[in-house]
């Protein structure tokens, strides 16, 4: 759920009868469960919404390297260091195939990168929170990847072929990520007093930001309705958030940790937990750029891009020289 509050274009979902013949044929393909491929005709709004959504997802994978990369050099054992490196490498790989999926819609990776760097495109709010102790590596894997999986598993069935295929690959790796996160939490929850305190503190800090990952309630949103009709969004935010809470609370109990919500209570009638909403005012501030780490995260990405300019230019210059030499030889 690395895409939040993606705006679709248009003003609402039209009925089949209201649609143009092209739009109608397109919608009927989607309703029949067919996959849309890059060369197929598609409404402009479908293309634009997907670029926003996939781009935001890709950017989240890239920025998401930073809070975890923050602990690679301090990982407490060689094995933990290796696992964390593998995980962050996976995330960069996810970014790569998501950018490739977006590129099939007619936008380049460099264009998307520029839009991330100057703030025109967003990434998930969650990566604007700091990772302060080793337990945060556990919490990020367990809660953040756990929330991401909630959204990405249904997206394997999304209507756009390249996105669906990317999600299938991503999901395989994400479930490994979540397990390693839970494993870190378990080691710490069973550890000494300090380790237990660290684990609880990480849960306290990441619980509400993880709930925010699903975005505010969208049951009345025209954008979400359109995205759901196009099958580029498969569930409402509230459905996914409920599912996440229902799955995670027993895991927290198993770990002997306390979910920081006094209103958390099993509701027999609905067959799920009642729980407190996160502070949506905080969420909107983070989205606007006023979260704890927004400035640092974007500065780090901008620095990497700017410092790397000579490398990219050097590589291009070399490739051009090689081509020229080859031409001269022919």
């Amino acid at each position: 759920m690395y895409a939040q509050m993606v705006k679709s274009t248009g003003t609402g979902v039209q009925s089949l009868d209201e649609m143009s013949p092209e739009d109608r044929a397109f919608q009927e393909r989607i309703d029949a469960g067919e996959k849309i491929e890059p060369k197929d005709w598609m409404p402009d709004g479908y293309r634009k919404t997907l670029i926003r959504q996939i781009g935001q997802h890709a950017h989240s994978e890239i920025v998401g390297q930073l809070p975890e990369g923050n602990w690679i050099t301090r990982a407490p054992t060689l094995e933990r260091k290796a696992i964390l490196l593998a995980k962050v490498q996976d995330e960069a790989g996810h970014g790569l195939y998501l950018y490739c999926a977006a590129e099939t819609l007619g936008i380049s990776r460099d264009e998307m990168t520029e839009m991330l760097l100057d703030g025109r495109m967003k990434y998930s709010s969650i990566f604007n929170y700091p990772t302060l102790t080793w337990a945060d590596m556990g919490a990020v894997g367990w809660l953040v990847d756990g929330a991401a999986i909630m959204n990405q598993v249904p997206l394997q069935r999304t209507s756009f072929g390249p996105y669906s295929r990317a999600m299938i690959r991503v999901c395989k790796e994400e479930s490994f990520h979540q397990r390693q996160g839970f494993d870190i939490m378990m080691k710490m929850a069973q550890g000494n007093t300090q380790q237990k305190a660290m684990a609880q503190d990480a849960l306290n800090r990441f619980w509400y930001p993880a709930l925010m990952m699903f975005g505010p309630s969208d049951k009345d949103s025209v954008h979400s309705a359109q995205s759901m009709a196009w099958k580029i969004k498969m569930n409402t935010n509230d459905e996914l958030r409920q599912k996440f809470v229902d799955q995670t609370v027993p895991q927290a109990e198993y770990l002997g940790l306390t979910v920081p919500d006094e209103n958390l209570k099993w509701n027999e009638e609905k067959g799920g937990y009642d729980f407190s909403e996160p502070d949506w005012e905080e969420f909107f501030e983070v989205i606007k750029g006023n979260g704890p780490c927004n400035t640092d995260r974007l500065a780090a990405r901008n620095k990497a891009w700017d410092d790397g300019a000579w490398v990219r230019e050097g590589m291009m210059a070399h490739a051009a020289k090689k081509r020229a030499r080859k031409m001269a030889a022919e």
Binding site: L96, Y99, A300, D307
Partner: peptide, 11 residues
């Protein structure tokens, strides 16, 4: 990690 000139190099 996360600071390379291009994504392929990060990987």
């Amino acid at each position: 990690c996360g600071h390379a000139p291009v994504l392929e190099e990060d990987i």
